[in-house]
């Protein structure tokens, strides 16, 4: 997949010897651009958070309101990723394995949450799931409230995260060998057995990857959530909103501290999931 490396080390920096020009130029521009646009600003974030000192940093993060916001953001993002694992797998399976009218259309529509601006999704979901909305109105008589409760956050994050699972799992289903399934069938396995023993293990790494991506996106999501969440501290206040509130109070250091913690946490979780994935791949040899 990668370049057929000749492993011939160049005179400096160990770069591959090649006739193609432009290495110093492109590397220089890339580094400058990345530094100016991404690295320097993120460094400013870390620097600002150090202004609090260790005590202030810890106090900001151990504040019950901050802890609650982290619990809401990470907890609901995880729940949404789990729901998307089930339904995303179902959708991917149906799209890859069955032919039915409208399949192409649905296939294209799966990417809608990527393309639809989050603010549009936010006001639309809030309208839809409020007590007098199309879906909220159906649920209200049963005492189920979605909009302006933690359920609303869940709905928004399921919407945002769906394509991640579907698009990660779909190509794996397409590549799945049918022989094993056929063999199992001729040996008399039920379809549930085939799914649990043969199909699921093969798809699990992809499902986990999709979940991880959906989770990472869900944790940071702001636009679609603030319109539909109740934004109640301790109950339905997400971490990005808490950051904005701190900014509006001009508590820049506090906002930076929470931002730094959030960056590190999502990074750690992604790392952990990557490890699990490598382990799974080794175990199931997918």
């Amino acid at each position: 997949m990668s370049i057929a490396a000749t492993e011939e080390r160049g005179s400096w920096g160990g770069r591959q010897h090649t006739a193609i020009p432009g290495f110093p130029l492109t590397l220089g521009i890339t580094l400058c651009y990345l530094t100016a646009i991404i690295l320097l600003p993120l460094a400013a974030l870390f620097l600002k958070s150090t202004g609090l000192g260790f005590g202030g940093f810890a106090r900001t993060l151990l504040d019950p309101r901050t802890i609650a916001a982290f619990r809401v953001s990470f907890g609901i993002a995880l729940a949404a990723a789990l729901i998307n694992a089930v339904f995303g797998l179902l959708v991917a399976w149906v799209l890859e394995r069955y032919r039915f009218p409208g399949r192409r259309l649905i296939d294209g529509l799966v990417d809608l949450p990527f393309a639809l601006p989050t603010a549009v999704a936010g006001i639309s979901l809030a309208t839809l799931y409020s007590d007098n909305g199309w879906i909220g109105g159906l649920l209200a008589p049963f005492g189920i409230d979605i909009a302006y409760t933690p359920n609303g956050i869940l709905v928004a994050l399921v919407f945002i995260g769906l394509p991640f699972v579907v698009r990660t799992v779909q190509p794996i289903i397409a590549d799945l060998e049918h022989e094993a399934e056929e063999a199992a069938r001729t040996l008399g396995a039920t379809r549930l057995q085939i799914f649990a023993r043969i199909v699921l293990p093969a798809l699990l790494p992809a499902v986990l990857t999709g979940m991880a991506l959906a989770f990472a996106r869900g944790v940071g999501e702001y636009g679609s959530v603030i319109f539909i969440a109740g934004n109640m501290p301790g109950l339905s206040e997400i971490v990005p909103l808490l950051i904005v509130i701190k900014l509006e109070q001009f508590d820049y250091a506090g906002a930076s501290a929470i931002g730094v913690a959030m960056l590190l946490l999502s990074f750690l979780i992604l790392l952990a999931i990557n490890f699990t994935q490598v382990w799974m791949r080794r175990r199931y040899g997918a």
Binding site: Y148, G230, E237, I245
Partner: peptide
């Protein structure tokens, strides 16, 4: 007080629209 919005309009929406 369960929630402090950043402005008066936000608080109105919280009370009337979100029914808190």
């Amino acid at each position: 007080v369960p929630v402090l919005d950043s402005g008066a309009r936000g608080a109105t929406l919280t009370f009337v629209q979100r029914r808190q």
